[in-house]
């Protein structure tokens, strides 16, 4: 009987150790930011994980380095695992500025009153999705939206469920061609990212898929597309897509001067400078231009029609 009693103090010691360690962490972490109002010097940026993680790391690593130098405050890139997490962390204020797609951008602005779309790439005001097909599927290029009805009965995959160019707009155009979700063989897949869609279609896991034009071009340029296995069959009409959105506290920082410097930093990106050219290349763009909330009204309307915005 005596021994078990003696173990009680041991257990209490563990608890004390545990609590002690917690309060020790308290002082360590005191230099990180604490609340919405108390915005610290640095800013955190994020991006929807639309491409392979190592690409994102390379791109946003370069972006945060560039912004740190231009703005004179530490800029951190925080990677996230899915589209929803990017919106969620923007909402709670862990991310001050995020590179969103059309749909996630609308979702984010609906969650955070006063946030604004500030910048887009030159390609984003005229963005396209590309339908691709495995050559073994027998699918051939089609001329117009109606031609997409050839996809009926095929094994088909979208990208992420919250993707504008990998799901929302393609589903909208498929609807115009009279192709419903139930018309595919089995249920349509959701690969999670544009890169993965390309790989799954090339490997024949799915007969056809859809992804954003910029990722498709980047893969072609990088020699990752095997023409004997996968071909482009349709390029959609244009729509607005990706853009940077800033939280209201960032917009108001230094009386609005700070966000102007962010805009300048992006619009001044110069292809003649090798470091800045790398950033533009990774973005697949020639330059950045300003944008505004109203550009995404169409996306919002389609999102509501398809039930992706409530």
């Amino acid at each position: 009987m005596r021994n078990p009693i003696r173990r009680i103090p041991a257990l209490l010691c563990i608890l004390a150790l545990f609590l002690g360690a917690c309060s020790g962490g308290d002082t360590d972490a005191s230099d990180t930011e604490e609340g919405i109002d108390n915005s610290a010097e640095g800013i955190s940026i994020g991006a929807i994980p639309d491409q392979a993680p190592e690409k994102l790391q390379r791109l946003y690593g370069a972006v945060s380095e560039y912004l740190t130098a231009e703005l004179g405050v530490p800029v951190d890139y925080v990677p996230v695992t899915d589209y929803t997490a990017a919106v969620g962390l923007f909402k709670v204020g862990d991310l001050d500025m995020v590179w969103f797609g059309g749909l996630t951008g609308v979702q984010a602005r609906l969650q955070v009153e006063g946030s604004q779309a500030i910048l887009q790439r030159d390609i984003d005001e005229n963005f396209h999705s590309v339908f691709i097909a495995n050559t073994a599927s027998g699918l051939t290029p089609v001329d117009d939206v109606e031609g997409l009805s050839a996809l009926k009965g095929k094994r088909f995959t979208f990208g992420s469920e919250s993707s504008t160019s990998g799901r929302l707009m393609p589903q909208y155009f498929l609807g115009q061609a009279g192709v419903r979700q139930a018309d595919f063989q089995g249920e349509p897949g959701f690969s999670g990212s544009h890169d993965k869609t390309a790989e799954l279609v090339q490997a024949g896991s799915f007969e056809a898929g859809v992804l954003n034009e910029q990722v498709w071009k980047a893969r072609q340029d990088a020699g990752q597309v095997d023409d004997s296995k996968v071909i482009e069959i349709f390029r959609t009409p244009a729509y607005h897509d990706y853009h940077w959105i800033a939280r209201p506290d960032l917009i108001e920082r230094d009386g609005g001067e700070f966000v102007e410097r962010v805009k300048e930093a992006f619009t001044n990106l110069d292809p003649a400078d090798p470091d800045q050219k790398e950033i533009l290349d990774l973005f697949g763009a020639n330059g950045f231009i300003e944008t505004e909330n109203d550009n995404y009204a169409e996306i919002e309307q389609i999102g509501r029609e398809l039930g992706l915005i409530s």
Partner: peptide, 23 residues
């Protein structure tokens, strides 16, 4: 286990104050 828990709290840099933060 006690040691593991203590090292863990240090590794994760836990800050319980977040729980009752204004945010």
């Amino acid at each position: 286990f006690g040691v593991l828990a203590a090292v863990s709290a240090w590794h994760l840099q836990l800050d319980p104050a977040t729980l009752w933060s204004q945010r």
